[in-house]
Design a protein around this nucleic acid. Structure first.
Lengths: 333, 333
DNA sequence: TTGTAAGCGTTATCAA
DNA sequence: TTGATAACGCTTACAA
């Protein structure tokens, strides 16, 4: 590998001049610049980003900490962030936190030790206090889908209470009274907010919250499965099922069909997130749209604005979910 | 941030000693080691991985180059690789190539310039020659789902011809003669191999390949949609549809249902990859299992063995696909 | 506009 | 078993 030193020698200039060319510094004459570029070309020179960042303590890379590397939700998120950042010549370093406190912390440490210029994180297990403390460090932290009052300028979040409310209200206005609810793990703020919205809608229409129609799932297909099974065994009648995410809804749909339900007439089902495959289920799944790509893009923009000083960027910190009405929730007479 | 220098001062030893402790070097007395560790603790010292890799030209990180950051296929792949590597204390740096030649190349360059100890790549647009050339460089390259004879020891691949054969043969043995086929983009080797297998099965059973029952899709839902539309407009009768991946199959299923097909009785559909949501479609989708997680794990193991000198690892370079029989392909009398 | 030289935080080679 | 000291490849005052 050629180094900057060899380039400088071949071009007959000093190290600093080569460095200037590398960094598009204005104070270089056209002529020298050309000489240097040619030398680089000739040697197939590739600057070492490691050395650059050691010297400059900037890396042109932003860390992304997500819960999982797979799953449609995180896929969309990573993809949107990466695309926006790459367009600005920045790179991303992605690491998973697996919704586990110590793994999330070590993810942060890794990213920080890699000198990321900033970190965009979707974390669920670490406490707000930890995040606030971390934000005082040298690496700026941005939060996706999480609102922490003390560092709200660094948060991009979704109004999940509203989303939860919307989901259940839709079922009610479509004629349902006995509505089962499969929640997500309650340590996840998204999940507990959605539940809050559910209860809000219930109470608005004077429907009592029934423990026998409430189950806490795992945000995966199995959660939908297990939840529906639990409800059926409880023998409390219900005509609608609201799930706190699409994966659980699809699991429930499958279980329902396998156990003699005729969908959607026997049971109306609602998801949450509007993940890509919901449109390919049968019946197509009514769901609450979680504008993940837009939010990812916004998070990237926020970093571009704050850290890389791009101008003319307007930031929207809180997104509103909206209803996507499909076939799984027909109106009941 | 505390540096190694401050640690050495507080512990009353030299830089080198601290470095030795950091690297678990044996030639350090228990006593000094303890002193140093305490100093580290006290200062909350975190070694700079940047500086470390500049000095050692090792990074404990392996680059992953995938086509897309989202999508169930790549999600599973990244996840499996990362899990295995993380268990060995290595980190991954992920970057997407978007199935585009110049983007894939710049992905490689980025990863190489980050001094990754190795790169695991799933690339589709760059040529074999490029990969062979690249393999001569200082960063070892490993290929996922791609077989290149000259560097076969660095390849982990799936026998896609066999998979394609299996898919179509299954349809034939279940009683179908008029089988439509929606292929993937033919510059992708996976796609062209699957097609090859399809033709092989056809000819084995003396069924002629019919251009009117052949469509090249984009490996996404839209491809399934458009393909089925094309076949219907062609007005050539067919009773079975084989798709080169699950996304296209799900798109086709939806289009079929919207256009009056009764599934699966009117049309048998076969997917490929056994992506997570195939089991939640209705009818559940018969598909060819692509053991992505196993292959990802194997690729990680290969790196662990070759690069990090782990012992006792057995490598399987070529994986065999198998049939997952579900409800979308009933037998025809 | 260009060059000199001092870092950046480690590892690695010697010598002690 | 420990310590000096020279790399690693680049950026960045400061000087010229």
């Amino acid at each position: 590998m050629a180094t900057i030193y060899q380039v400088s020698e071949l071009a007959g200039v000093s190290l600093s001049t080569v460095s200037r060319v590398l960094n598009n510094n204005d104070y270089v004459s056209k002529k020298t610049k050309k000489k240097v570029m040619e030398a680089m070309q000739q040697l197939g020179y590739q600057p070492s980003s490691i050395a650059r960042s050691l010297a400059s303590s900037r890396t042109s890379s932003v860390g992304i900490l997500v819960s999982e590397l797979d799953g449609p939700f995180f896929g969309q998120m990573m993809s949107a962030i990466e695309e926006q950042l790459r367009a600005a010549g920045k790179h991303v370093i992605i690491t998973p936190g697996h919704s586990d406190e110590s793994k999330e912390k070590s993810g942060f440490e890794f990213l920080i030790s890699r000198n990321c210029d900033a970190i965009i994180a979707h974390v669920e297990a670490v406490s707000n206090e930890y995040l606030i403390e971390l934000s005082k460090g040298k690496t700026p932290i941005y939060l996706m889908s999480r609102y922490v009052e003390e560092i709200k300028d660094n948060c991009i979040s979704l109004d999940n209470v509203m989303g939860g409310y919307l989901a259940t209200k839709t079922m009610i206005t479509r004629g349902h009274k006995n509505i089962a609810y499969i929640a997500g793990p309650q340590f996840k703020i998204d999940a507990s907010d959605r539940l809050k919205g559910h209860k809000q809608a219930l109470s608005e229409f004077a429907i009592e919250f029934n423990e026998n129609l409430f189950y806490i799932g795992d945000f995966k297909e199995t959660g939908g499965n297990d939840g529906l099974k639990y409800f059926i065994e409880n023998k409390v009648p219900f005509t609608a099922l609201v799930c706190a995410n699409d994966e659980m809804a699809s699991g429930a749909m499958k279980y329902a069909r396998e156990h003699g339900f005729n969908l959607p007439s026997d049971l109306a089902i609602m998801g949450y997130d509007n993940v890509i495959f919901t449109n390919y289920l049968y019946p197509t799944l009514t769901t609450i749209n979680n504008p993940v790509p837009e939010m990812g893009k916004m998070a990237a923009n926020l970093v571009l604005k704050d850290i890389y000083k791009h101008s003319g960027i307007t930031i929207n910190h809180i997104f509103q979910p909206n209803l996507i009405l499909r076939d799984s929730t027909p109106t009941v007479k």
